[in-house]
Design a protein around this nucleic acid. Structure first.
Length: 112
DNA sequence: CTAGTGACTGTTT
DNA sequence: AAAACAGCCACTA
């Protein structure tokens, strides 16, 4: 695929329950560092029937990024995360120090 | 082909 | 801490 979208989706699927990842993190894991915008663009193109846990992707500040549509602020992203155990600050931010997904070097044969 | 936009990020003020 | 700038690339007109 010329488009990196499927790559982003594959990475996002690796985000475990109760953890979150930043756009930049997803981009880097997908092999496209410096392209966090494309991740957001990819999520924008996600169909509703997609099983990609897009709600586990937040911005570098640990906040939920608002979409283009102002009436889309009522998205279930926060509720979905809270159900997984992710806590939000009074300012609506997530403590990335505690909830950011720390992927490991995909051990193919050894080391772990 | 050019120009504008965007679920972002890092550096500088 | 918040705001302003610049960088990056895919998509749309």
């Amino acid at each position: 695929m010329s488009s990196p979208y499927p790559r982003f989706y594959a990475v996002i699927r690796r985000i475990p329950r109760g953890r979150v990842a930043t756009y930049g993190q997803v981009a880097e894991l997908a092999g496209l560092p410096r392209q966090p915008r494309l991740v957001g663009y990819a999520l924008h193109a996600l169909p509703d029937e997609s099983t990609v846990p897009w709600h586990r992707v937040v911005n570098a500040k640990g906040e939920i990024s608002l979409r283009s549509d102002p009436h889309a602020i009522f998205n279930p992203q926060r509720d979905l995360l809270e159900e997984e155990g992710v806590e939000f600050d009074a300012r609506g931010r997530i403590a990335l120090a505690r909830f950011q997904w720390k992927p490991r070097r995909r051990p193919s044969r050894a080391q772990g």
